[in-house]
Amino acid sequence: MTMRRCVCLSVLLIVCAGCASRGESTRLTASDLTHMATAMAQSLARSEALANRGPDSEPWYITVNKVQNLSSDVMTESEQWMVIAKLRAELPLLALREQKNITFVLPAERVAKLRNHPDYVEYDERFGAERQVTHEMTATFRSLTRAQAKERTEVYYAEFEMLDLRTATPVWSDRFEFKRSAKGHVWD
C-alpha cells in the first residue's frame, strides 16, 4: 500500500508540475502612477503659488517636461508621458487659464517629435512658436533597492518641482513615495 501511495504521489507531483506560478514583482504599476499624478495635481492646485494668483496676474506659461527616470525600474516613454498627461488631466486647465492666467504648453521636445512624425500635417507654421515659457515643471523618479536572495524591496520616490525660469527659483515642489516588495528568488 505504501508503494501505491508513492506512485499516486509521484503522478500528482508530475501533474502539478504543469501548474504555473504567477510570481511577484517590485515594478512600478499603472495604478501607482495614476495615484501619484492625482496626488500631485491636488497638491499643485492647493499650493500657495497658485492661491495668490488671479486673472490679472502676469501670465505663466508652464511647460511640463517628460519624467526623468533615475529609478531602478524602466519606464517606457509612453509611461513617462502618461504621468504628465494624467497630471495635466487632473488639473482644471480651462479654469487655471481663466482664473489664474496660467497656460500649460507642450515642451519643445514634444513639439519637435510631433513635427517629425510621418503623419504630421503642418496646418500652421507657427505651431508651438509662441510658447514663451516662463515656468518649467519637472518630475524625477528615484528608488532605493534592497535585494536579498529571496526578497526584493523597492522604495520609489517621485519629486515634482515647478521652477520660475526667470529667477531660477522653485515656486512649488512636492514628492510622492511608495514601496513595493516581492518574495522569491530574483533569478527564479
Binding site: 509521484s10 507531483l13 508530475i14 502539478c16 508540475a17 501548474c19 504555473a20 506560478s21 504567477r22 510570481g23 511577484e24 514583482s25 517590485t26 515594478r27 525600474d73 524602466v74 526584493r152 516581492a182 518574495k183 522569491g184 528568488h185 530574483v186 527564479d188
Partner: peptide
C-alpha cells in the same frame, strides 16, 4: 523585462524540476 522582473515564477516547481525534469 516585465517577465524577468517577476520573481518566483518557478517557485512551486523546484521539487518537480528535481524529480521529473
Amino acid at each position: 523585462y516585465d517577465f524577468l522582473r517577476t520573481q518566483g515564477i518557478n517557485r512551486d516547481k523546484t521539487v518537480a524540476s528535481v524529480v521529473i525534469h
